[in-house]
């Protein structure tokens, strides 16, 4: 029963994230002081000069309004929007590469982002938590202090700075890795896999290093606190070997809040991934978003945003679903 209750509450949270995310995306642009359509038309007028007649202008305005779902009352617009965008994943055609559907671009870009994020989150979580565990478990040693200082220095460095530093050092000065990503399309061969790893290395490193700081500091604090728990003290008094105390007693327990926290911070990590992709021209959702912005392709932009929110919420929900496997107190009775 407890498990069902837990799963139910996580599902409600999942729906809440989706609902609030989609709603904000809908309302914020509409509450803005300036009208995006007018801005777009002004831009076109600038580019096209006097060649467009006022009548054609009005027609364009109506068309654009329909295209962006700006017709009817706010409530009607909202219901249309939810129905089309969220329930059917129909984002319409790309305005820039008309008439290819937006979904096509998104399905090409999404695996890149998910792959990059998945790999770097796992690596960063495992190594960061391992270092944090050592630092917290041997908190008296000089080596632990050094590890903590590493965490303190890395943690506050923002993603874009890390990306710039890596580009500067490894792509520009040493030229070990490419400045921006270039992967030829084609079937998946060993060569292509190599190319993917070679090209993804620096973006992945950015995300991994950025994740270290938080993982190290947070795990260190948790491991240090867990060490004082009565069951750890009792394990020591039973004569359990220190290594096993560290793994079976301290790590197994300290890791639980770390997993909950990971589910909560997926959004923040995703933000960093988008920025990193843009800076490395890595062909994921971030770059797609950048392209959409650059070309004023609103359909593509909305598509990438909705997919972002859905992906992040689903990933967090997935972690929530894994949690009971690790914590028997939720799984059993």
């Amino acid at each position: 029963m407890k498990l069902l209750q837990y799963l139910g509450s996580r599902f409600v949270a999942y729906i809440a994230v989706l609902f609030i995310g989609v709603t904000i995306t809908f309302f914020l642009p509409r509450l803005m002081p300036s009208d995006p359509i007018e801005g777009y038309i002004a831009q076109m007028q600038n580019q096209a000069g006097q060649t467009i007649t006022p009548e054609a202008m009005d027609e364009l305005r109506v068309q654009l309004r329909r295209l962006y779902g700006l017709e009817g009352s706010l409530v009607e617009q909202y219901i249309n929007y939810i129905n089309k965008v969220v329930l059917q994943f129909d984002f319409g055609p790309s305005l820039y590469s008309y008439p290819r559907p937006v979904a096509e671009f998104i399905w090409t870009a999404l695996p890149w982002t998910l792959g990059l994020l998945g790999v770097s989150i796992v690596i960063s979580w495992i190594i960061g938590n391992f270092i944090g565990l050592l630092a917290g478990f041997f908190h008296n040693s000089r080596f632990a202090t050094t590890l903590e200082v590493v965490g303190v220095v890395i943690y506050p460095i923002p993603y874009y700075i890390l990306a710039l530093l890596l580009i500067l050092q490894f792509a520009y000065i040493w030229q070990w890795f490419p400045l921006s990503t270039t992967i030829r399309p084609g079937p998946l061969t060993w060569e292509k896999v190599n190319a993917i790893i070679y090209n993804s290395f620096l973006p992945a490193m950015t995300l991994i290093i950025a994740g270290f700081g938080w993982n190290i500091l947070s795990m260190k604090a948790l491991a240090f606190a867990t060490k004082e728990e009565p069951y750890v003290v009792f394990a020591r008094l039973k004569g359990v070997k220190p290594r096993r105390i560290m793994t079976r007693y301290v790590f197994r327990n300290a890791t639980l809040p770390q997993i909950t926290a990971l589910a909560l911070s997926i959004g923040t990590i995703f933000n960093g991934a988008l920025l990193t992709e843009i800076l490395f021209s890595y062909p994921g959702l971030g770059l797609l978003m950048r392209t959409a912005i650059g070309s004023g392709d609103f359909n593509l932009m909305y598509g990438t945003i909705i997919v972002s929110i859905v992906s992040v919420a689903t990933a967090a929900f997935f972690i929530d679903l894994i949690y009971p496997l690790i914590d028997p107190r939720i799984r059993l009775r």
Partner: peptide
């Protein structure tokens, strides 16, 4: 040794069987 806070002296995420022999 039987500890004072015996209520919380068992590891909550490991089966008791394992805690009986892990030393």
């Amino acid at each position: 040794y039987i500890p004072q806070s015996s209520m919380s002296s068992l590891n909550p995420v490991v089966k008791i069987r394992k805690q009986f022999v892990d030393f």
